[in-house]
Write a protein that binds this DNA or RNA. Sequence first.
RNA 1: GGGCGCUUAGCUCAGCUGGUUAGAGCGCCUGCCUUACAAGCAGGAGGUCCACGGUUCGAUCCCGUGAGCGCCCACCA
Length: 881
Amino acid sequence: MQLEKVYEPQRFEPHWAQWWIDAGVFRAATHSKANGTFSLVIPPPNVTGSLHMGHMLEHTEIDVTVRWHRMLGENTLWLPGMDHAGIATQMVVERKLAAQGIDRRAIGREAFEAKVWEWKAESGDTIKCQMIRLGTSCDWSRERFTLDPGLSRAVREVFVRLYEKGLIYRGEYMVNWCPGCRTAISDLEVSHKEAPGNLWHLSYPVVGTDRFLVVATTRPETMLGDTAVAINAKDERYKDLHGRKVRLPLTGREIPIILDDLADPEFGTGAVKVTPAHDLNDFECGKRHGLKSIRVIDETGKLTAEAGVYTGLDRFEARKRVVEDLEKAGVLERVEDYTLNLGRCDRCNTVVEPLVSTQWFVKTKPLAEKAIQAVESGAIEIVPENWIKTYNEWMYNIRDWCVSRQLWWGHRIPAWYCDACGEIIVAREEPASCPKCDGSALRQDTDVLDTWFSSGLWPFSTLGWPDQTEDLKTFYPTSLLITGFDILFFWVARMIMLGIEFMGEVPFKQVYIHGLVRDADKQKMSKTRGNTIDPLVVTEQYGTDAVRMALLTAAAPGTDIVFTQERMESSRAFANKIWNAARFLFMNMERSGVEPSESFVLDSEPVTLEDRWIFSRLNSCAEQVNRAIAQHRYHEVAQTLWHFVWDDFCDWYIELKKLRFQENSGLNSDWRNILSAFEAMLRLLHPAMPFVTEELWQQLGEKSAGRPISIVLAAYPQYSVEKTDVAAEKEMETLQAIIGAARNLRAEMKVDPKLRLTGTLYSRGDAQKTAAAHSLAVQKLANLNLDWGGETAPADIGAMRSTTEFDLVLHLPAAQPEAQRGRLEKERDQLEKVIANSHRQLSDEAFVSRAPEKVVTSIRQKLAEYEAQLQKVRASLDALS
RNA sequence: GGGCGCUUAGCUCAGCUGGUUAGAGCGCCUGCCUUACAAGCAGGAGGUCCACGGUUCGAUCCCGUGAGCGCCCACCA
């Protein structure tokens, strides 16, 4: 049993990922809550998971919020994203098609799918989609390019039920239309950004007078579709224009002047043009006044036949032309610079066009009320809780959700239209004939649903709903959802609304919201910026465990995660450290003929100080880690583990054990304890670093009776009071302090590390006893032989370091007064500072009388210690001069 | 226009309910190729905790104001 000298995670990570899946540990783990271990955590192959890395996935765009921590709750289930894989696939396919010069929009749904399959057959290519292996919906190996049938069924079921309850309706409404994608998109998919623009002031002649009414607009081309001009009824300036009409320039149409609050007397000229077909406010105003709606821009962003001479022009070209013509006509009063908030499509960055069209909507108000209640009542706990405010803000101001999309890929809307009588049929299965007129010419709606509609069903659709399956009973509601704040509304809010609606119960009890992973310059990762990180590349480079650990250490709640190379490098060093600790153990086992399967005992009896100490430390490490996990303080988990592994286990415990091996190549008791501590450490580390811990854990011992087949299934270390060994920790602290003092002095005095020194230890407590008991440790770790003095060292003795417990004096081959003086003066200054500070506090009447006694006495105690130390330092300084 | 957050060592950040000589990683300096690990070991330097005011016996922490930075939401022409 030997490990390669070079740590190469790539050699065992894929193996373990595959093994876990093949062995079905995935399912087993899900159901093993009975023994109190965990519910589910398998890091998907090659995905670093652990935190929200959706932004980093160039290949797949799958949300891989993978749960790495497993012992969180009794009912924790976490599977990766579902039909996002489908959308991602579509995008990848589109990209590849585009490279072949094929525009999917030009060819229609059926032709598109056919093309995809033809292309796939030709290229023999596979789409990289890590989630496939875990049984999600998008699977290229299936015979058709289809969505998961179970999910499709759930989607249809939900749609039909909402429709029957009147919570889904089909209507004409103003939607955000993306002329680039040629589909409607939801409000959330529009991102607003400020952009420089103009405000054009146009003067419309008032019919039957010689007056003009000046309106201001940021989009002059829409004036072609104006059907009114609004003024405020209270606006004194326009009192005399009530009931009149204006003649619309360029078209010559006469349109009414209406009274509406849309017109704000404070803004601009107080008069506003009304274009019901191309602006939401105008649309609503139009409805109030029964105005006609004239569409002058079509789905492709070109001007319609209604636009007269401008027909067929692109909307931006049309704007130029309209402005020119308005100027020629002398109605362009003036132009001013104006910053406008331009909405663009999240996906393709095209300027969104508000367009009236017929779409399917979900009435969200009734759903939102229950969702608000769920958080308010504490049925769902959001962590950190400041997100509740954001959540409520959105829920209270929620608007109906446009769920139909004019895309090719997705769940098709289960609605059919009868050609004969126009009836709309919403049904679970394709109807044979129209229930109203019995006609058989039925067409299914070609629109598909918003991807978040099906994603919103995730907590129950994945569990077999609408069937009452065992899984559904066991895992609904789940205990925890971990996600990034960027999809709080998109996904979390909708899961809550739909979950409550269809299950009558919240979908999860806790939502932990973490920050976004940002690049080294703190920029949000996005494809348009080109600063995304491909997890497949970085995990290949540093190892999955290292990347996970790097993310964890950076994941303080409420803050974003900066993803830097340095952090990954140091995490890789950490993984390497663990690897080498194991290597050391295995080499020595070989040397001393220890068989792992024999010596591997779980609850061994500690014999030596270092064993008692490491077990005690391990115990408090388990306590801290478990607590930090419960509080979602993941960076603290990482930090605690790091400190334990590196400082306690490697730098002290192993160093001390080396001495045992030098003495006697290790007694059985040594081996039992080392291996026990190491094994427990691996289990503690496993959620953070699953691969390296599994690899080492497997190598550590043969499958013996009662031992699980995988570390994933082994119990997570827990704290217990009786495992705390205060005496051992105290003694070890003293030993560390003595060695530390000696090392410090040696370095300070520039003593050759190879030179064995002698020293004298003066002790006021157990320091001499401790040093005597562990003289070999002092000798080897500090290269020092000690003899014993009294309680306090005389002042005039050379190099000395003191604590409250002891004075350590080193006998140097040559006096080095200068080095000593510098050191002592510095120490003196420091002490004088803190002493002055303490004095100031203690002489303050108010402080002494009002501060808690505990605080006052502790300061008194410290002051005494400082003063004692200062005295020694001063005496030594005097002795020097 | 509303809302949220940040400002601590050269860099990236911790610091959970106010009291420690304010911490970590990286970087830097000094010395070590000590057969687990140079992706390492030992030691060290480095901070007016953004500014000003307030509350308090006591403020990096709580409150207010200001400065700088970032994010989210919003249909004002």
